[in-house]
Amino acid sequence: MTLEQDQNLCKIIDSYSSKDDAYWSFRGRAKRFHCHNLIHYPAMMVPEMQGELLDVFLTEVQNIESVIDPFVGSGTTLSEALSRGLDFLGIDINPLAILACEVKSGALYTKKLQEKTDLLLHNIKKDKSNIVSKNFFGINKWFTKQTQLELSTIYRCIKAEQSKWARKIFWLSLSTTVRAVCNSRSSTYKLHIKPNKEIDNIPSAILIFEKTINKNISNMKEQKEFLAKNKVLKINKSISKVFLKNIDTTNNIKHNKKYDLLISSPPYGDNQTTVPYGQFSYLPLMWIDIADIKNLSKKNMLINPNTIDFNSLG
């Protein structure tokens, strides 16, 4: 990029805030739709902000074809890159982030997904087993017995699904469900036990899962329509080439392709105390078959609730 292009970019971006000091806060203008709404994740970026910045660069700088985000998180930058047909490399140490990005960049077989979801929900409702299918340290602290049984039912039925692409979508929906029905407070990303009164009123995991998966199907249908409208959809999938790496960004990143533009939002403060992405993700990951997450390479990241945060850059 030339000095003149750099100066033009600065002028354009400055012009937005010169008219409105609060322009880049996107207060009242931020909305999460289609794949941006598949998961709630700590400290997510504003999609409209990333989209506008991308459009400025695409207008002013020729030959931008690819984007890299070394702290990809739930994939906000990924989603905006997909919407513009740009190739993408996303990096994150958190397995839940990798799963979310795999789902967002995966094939959009929405009709088949609806059929598989209907069958999954049917199988969940007819499963009468009283077996808890998972066992990990703290399970009785963080989940009531009834919730353990219901999550186990969902877990077994997802495992029985033969298509991995569908299982990944189901696992992501289950991750949201786990956060909603665990005994940890929803007012913080840290693991803090709820008061007994709130634990007594925890909703049915099966009902929450059904609501979540149906919402996510609607989001994926919106995503498919959006990509088709932007002419970046080919045979039920974005034309973008997406690569995801579960590695530590402080190490050398080996990749056979160079990327034109870096857009990211690094971790906020100290992961262990400020925004604990690992604590947020730990309980959901305990109920997911992580063997279904394709790009995992970091080992022993789920030893305890703090392992991800201790290994993170923040």
Rank of each mutant, 00 (worst) to 15 (best):
K145R: 12
I290G: 03
P267S: 02
Y41E: 06
H34W: 13
D289R: 06
K237V: 04
C10A: 15
N246R: 03
T177M: 04
S204W: 08
K112A: 12
E65T: 08
A166T: 07
D260S: 08
Q7E: 14
N304E: 07
K125D: 10
N216Y: 03
A43H: 01
D127F: 02
I239Y: 05
S173Y: 06
Q279L: 07
L121I: 05
L86I: 00
L38Y: 04
K229S: 15
I68L: 05
N123M: 10
F170I: 02
M1Y: 08
T273F: 14
L296R: 08
K141I: 12
L296D: 07
S25Y: 14
S240D: 00
A107I: 15
N214V: 07
N252T: 15
K257H: 10
K134E: 08
N252I: 15
L119F: 09
S18G: 13
K164F: 14
T212L: 07
T188V: 05
L191E: 03
P70S: 06
Y16K: 10
I39S: 04
E210W: 05
I253L: 10
I263Q: 02
I263F: 08
N304R: 04
D270V: 11
L283C: 06
I64W: 04
S152T: 08
S17W: 10
W165G: 09
K298T: 10
E198R: 10
K234C: 11
I199R: 05
L233S: 02
S264G: 06
E150D: 05
T250Y: 12
K11R: 14
N306L: 11
V61Y: 09
T250W: 13
